[in-house]
């Protein structure tokens, strides 16, 4: 299919493995879905220690279920990415281990205390869910199908996160202060979740033209702020003074971009941020430690030179 035809036909769930898609489309879709898959995996690794550190048996059960879900989402998404015939699942997992694979800015930061779990589970997952709901209308059908299942499960994550937040914000004064403190630390990162403003976004135009992305960074950031500022305030959190956020007459928000640390953001985007490298290597070590399990699985030992999956399969 010619790229002009792709742009013309672009619409929700319009293209599948039955279509012969141009390389430019397949590469853009692979980059996007691989990033998403990697983010699921790295998010799960960030939250995993809190299965052990959960303050109650209920939280422990919920956290272990959540981590299990996120790893599952990663697997679904690697399959959707693989269906484009550009990279194999193994190549993507190897790239994640060797520091080439890119993933969400928020998961490059260390998570040390329990109140931080609410920041990830309520606000980051809330932001992710806003975005994922729009991706159910992406043009690559296998990606949209993966989003159906992810969105089905994700509501639990957000509501469980809210439950942690509610508990902390109605707890002792100390708990409330700790929660406000981590909120101030995470808030700018969460706003940066949506990436730089549209005119500075590198990949937006093409992805939007071919229907991979259905909403721009700015639209999504707006949708998030409109929904989650009132929720933060309802639980007694104070929105930090910076970044400055102004509400326009039409109800949308303007974020003062200069108040955000873009040097840090782009260092993270290159996988060069020190704590993020710690996360990448931590996962790599965990992978190594259980290599023997994979080695015993016969299907891992397929002979060299086995045909790579193609989009036309």
């Amino acid at each position: 299919m010619e790229i002009d035809t792709v742009k013309e036909r672009a619409g929700p769930r319009e293209f599948s493995a039955a279509d012969e898609m141009p390389l430019e489309y397949r590469e853009a879709a692979t980059r996007m879905i691989e990033f998403h898959a990697n983010s699921e995996i790295m998010g799960a690794y960030l939250e995993r220690p809190f299965i052990r550190e959960a303050p109650s048996i209920d939280r422990k059960l919920a956290y272990s279920a959540k981590v299990q879900d996120e790893i599952g989402h990663g697997q679904l998404l690697y399959r959707a990415a693989e269906s484009l015939g550009v990279k194999t699942r193994e190549e993507m997992l190897d790239d994640l281990a060797n520091g080439k694979g890119k993933f969400l800015n928020c998961f490059h930061y260390p998570m040390k205390s329990w109140p931080e779990t609410a920041m990830i589970a309520f606000f980051v997952d809330g932001a992710a869910m806003r975005r994922q709901a729009t991706l159910r209308r992406t043009s690559w059908e296998p990606y949209a199908h993966a989003m159906d299942k992810v969105c089905f499960e994700e509501g639990f994550h957000v509501k469980h996160g809210e439950s942690i937040l509610a508990e902390l914000m109605t707890g002792s004064k100390k708990e409330q202060e700790m929660t406000q403190e981590v909120f101030e630390m995470w808030w700018p990162r969460i706003i940066q979740f949506f990436g730089p403003t549209d005119d500075k976004s590198t990949h937006h135009d093409f992805s939007a033209d071919v229907g991979l992305k259905t909403q721009s960074n700015d639209d999504l950031r707006n949708l998030f702020l409109r929904e989650y500022i009132p929720k933060a305030e309802k639980y007694g959190l104070e929105i930090p003074d910076e970044p400055r956020i102004r509400q326009r007459d039409d109800g949308t928000y303007e974020v003062e971009e200069g108040d955000l640390d873009w040097d840090e953001f782009f260092t993270i985007a290159k996988n060069e941020y020190e704590p993020g490298l710690g996360q990448i290597n931590g996962r790599k070590e965990a992978q190594k430690a259980v290599q023997w399990v994979r080695d015993t699985l016969e299907w891992e030992n397929v002979p060299e030179g086995t045909a790579k999956p193609q989009a036309a399969d």
Binding site: E153, G155, E162, A166, E227, Y228
Partner: peptide, 13 residues
Amino acid sequence: SDLDHAAEVIDSE
């Protein structure tokens, strides 16, 4: 919770 949830959270629930 009595929070007014986002549409996609309500949908998932």
